[in-house]
């Protein structure tokens, strides 16, 4: 967790999300886990793709990379440079979070991002999805909350 936090500090220097914005997103995720019992994960960053048209497929790979969580997890991907936002819902959570809720969340995100508000758009989308999902039994908090990595989602 300490290296993650150091990298989070480095984000501010490199021109990424400010630390406060990252904290807001982290808090929203933890609140959703605790109050709605919904596993939400958020990735903010561009994907390194050979073929730009394979963006959705790359995002679904990232969702699968969640491993055992993927069945009931919601992944939100925001690529500020490529200017694309994606929501992926696992098969086990599609009834709680239907596609129309995802579409509305994406719409509110892209509207906010177009106006320059990254963290606000993400936090609002998490809240919309959490409200639609309703309250369930709490999920335990994750051990490692934030990771920063060079992500490569390639397609063969």
């Amino acid at each position: 967790m300490a290296p993650g936090k150091e990298k989070a500090q480095a984000q501010l220097v490199e021109g990424g999300l400010p630390v406060r914005a990252q904290q807001r997103i982290q808090d929203a995720i933890e609140t959703t886990r605790r109050e709605n019992g919904l596993d939400v994960s958020v990735l903010v960053g561009d994907l390194a793709l050979d073929d730009p048209s394979q963006f959705r497929a790359g995002v679904e790979r990232l969702h699968a990379a969640l491993g055992s969580r993927a069945h009931t997890a919601v992944l939100i991907v925001v690529a500020p440079g490529q200017r694309r936002a994606e929501v992926v819902t696992g098969p086990g959570v599609r009834r709680r979070v239907p596609d129309r809720v995802c579409a509305l969340a994406v719409l509110s995100m892209t509207t906010a991002f177009g106006g320059g508000d990254l963290s606000g758009g993400v936090v609002d989308a998490i809240r919309q999805i959490a409200d639609a999902a309703g309250r369930r039994e709490s999920l335990a908090p994750l051990e490692q909350s934030m990771t920063s990595a060079e992500l490569v989602a390639q397609h063969h």
Partner: peptide, 11 residues
């Protein structure tokens, strides 16, 4: 955007 990707609640 040229910052390193950050994955919240990721693997």
């Amino acid at each position: 955007w040229d910052a390193t990707p950050v994955w919240f609640a990721g693997p």
